[in-house]
Amino acid sequence: MHAFWRSLARNRLAIAGGVVVVCLVAAALLAPALAPWDPHRPSIKQALAAPSAAHPLGTDQLGRDVLSRMLYGARVSLAVGFVSVGIATIVGLILGSLAGYHGGTVDAVVMRFVDLMLVFPSFFLLLAVLAFLRPSIWTIMAVIGLTSWMRVARLVRAEFLTLKEREFVIWSHAIGASTLRIIWRHILPNAIAPVLVAMTLGIPAAILTESGLSFLGLGVQPPHASWGNILNEGKDAIEIAWWLSFYPGLAILVTVLSYNLLGEGIRDALDPRLRQRGR
């Protein structure tokens, strides 16, 4: 563990990513205190105002403050990122450990189901599902989560396949530990490292997906702001109001990049071979 932190601390990009992520989470949590204006109240006379002291990031087509909307949008993006990755991780852990631990028929069935899910281009699967459901932040979290657990399931299964043959697992069997206890207390803690990396890398993917859906109008519904739908509104006015496209685009870019840097840093730090090379 100590080696992990030392290795992570030496990776400057990962640290930068981590700092940005922490700042974003803080900004999202403190949005009501930080936002200078009501993010939902139209003010037609202020429509499409350029960035100024009163509106540091300008206003949108209905005269709402872009900074305030972006702060509230950060809540949506981060919430979608965390919750949907949480759902994906839980589903992936359960199915992956079932398949890996039991092997045989269970493994075959679960893995074919994983293949089946991977066959669908996930974005189109999302679009199809959302056409039937009422779009809201909850359905989006659920749908993204339930269409992105396959990677975790595969990782967990692979870890289980090797771990279940190890001596400590065999000994646990020998002294009569229950299956659940073996999975929960002995194998899972050893399999968690790659899952942690997958989670960190899954969050930016979920944020991007949510932005894409909101851009297409299938994400969070108006008047609620998300970076994707601010960007969508901005595209019609891109020539006269660059701030409507630039800032949400920048926010998405920085967030996704930070998570990826952090995720890669964690991955490298967890990998003993890379750690050695680093030394």
Binding site: H40, P42, I44, Q61, G217, P222
Partner: peptide
């Protein structure tokens, strides 16, 4: 969907 004008009307009516 696809009609920005109506979406804006809906948002102003909402407020």
């Amino acid at each position: 969907q696809g009609n920005e004008e109506r979406r804006k009307v809906a948002e102003i009516v909402q407020a």
